[in-house]
């Protein structure tokens, strides 16, 4: 049964950063901005977190620092798309590549060093359950905080005024402006919030699930996050399901290998991406669903009242 414990435990660990970053991206996209620079923001978050842990030893400080570093990067992105009115796709790609590059540069001296992993907490009593206990209830705290955050954001989007304004801006920035909301302001806040969460997600990967820094260690997870948000049709409840599903898919690879089944490792590594392509294609075919849930202004430059 050890493999089952490993499957659950691994899934939670792999899904947590996906969930955190995807929640941020949902907020950004709900405001009508497509942020494709998640991969770069996660990389920057990861390398900064690694350095902070190395020198301070505080994992929590590292998570926050990673988030802030990515937030700084997202300010650049926000400036380009909101004020300079840059194309969101091109700007996102450029800022993302810039982030990956900067992370590699800053992280060069720390390549392949390791740090102590983030402390795992045992949930009293529950972690003593055989098989399930160690799988579900023996993890660093963020693993449990992420779903809580998801519930909070779900509530915010559905019931709060802030959520309403965010959805309104994403659906029709012109109308939102006409009824008196600051479209650029709302989108700016959404972008930096998304940037912060992407940074935290990258930091988590670096200091909780792998404990070392290596260039390119985010390994496409930023792209999976973007696909995940679309897969979830911009709905938080589906982002949660999707994140754990993708988490399981990425861990399945290790399981198959350990079971001694001979499958080319490249094929296994590509499974999460294949799942992404298939899932996104299938879901996008249902144009009606997309139309009902997608933020209508997503990706469109908002010219404001000039």
């Amino acid at each position: 049964m050890a493999w089952f414990t490993f499957l659950i435990s691994g899934t939670l660990l792999a899904a947590t950063p996906l969930l955190i970053a995807a929640l941020g991206e949902v907020i950004v996209e709900k405001s009508g901005v497509l942020n494709l620079s998640i991969e770069g923001m996660m990389s920057v978050g990861a390398v900064v977190a690694f350095i902070v842990v190395l020198y301070s030893g505080s994992h929590w400080l590292a998570l926050v620092a990673g988030g802030m570093a990515a937030l700084a990067l997202s300010v650049i992105f926000a400036f380009v798309v909101l004020l300079a009115l840059g194309n969101q796709v091109v700007s996102g790609l450029a800022v993302g590549l810039f982030g990956i590059g900067v992370a590699g540069l800053v992280g060069k001296p720390y390549e392949n060093m390791t740090v102590a992993p983030m402390q795992r907490i045992d949930v009293p009593l529950l972690s003593d359950i055989p098989v399930l206990g160690p799988g579900l209830f023996h993890h660093p705290l963020p693993v449990y905080l992420a779903p809580l955050l998801a519930v909070l954001l779900w509530w915010m989007l559905k019931y709060s005024k802030v959520g309403l304004v965010l959805r309104a801006v994403g659906e029709s920035p012109e109308s939102a402006n006409a009824v008196g909301y600051n479209v650029v302001g709302v989108r700016f806040l959404a972008i930096i919030f998304g940037g912060f969460l992407a940074g935290v997600a990258g930091a988590f990967i670096c200091i909780a699930s792998s404990t070392l820094w290596a260039d390119g260690m985010i390994a496409g997870r930023g792209w999976i996050v973007i696909a995940l948000v679309m897969f979830a049709m911009w709905r938080v409840e589906r982002v949660i399901i999707g994140a754990y599903l993708f988490g399981a898919a990425s861990i399945g690879e290790l399981l198959v290998q350990s079971a001694g089944i001979s499958v080319p490792s490249q094929l296994m590594t590509s499974i999460p991406y294949i799942v992404t392509i298939v899932a996104v294609s299938i879901l996008s075919m249902d144009g009606k669903r997309v139309r009902l849930n997608a933020p209508v202004s997503l990706g469109r430059v908002y010219l404001g009242t000039h």
Binding site: L164, V165, R167, A168, S175, A176, A178
Partner: peptide
């Protein structure tokens, strides 16, 4: 107050939600 020729309403929101934005 202004009532626009091309409405500034949000199609995916309810009437009450639309109004509560203002």
């Amino acid at each position: 107050g202004m009532v626009f020729q091309h409405f500034s309403l949000f199609e995916t929101l309810t009437v009450a939600e639309n109004i509560s934005l203002s």
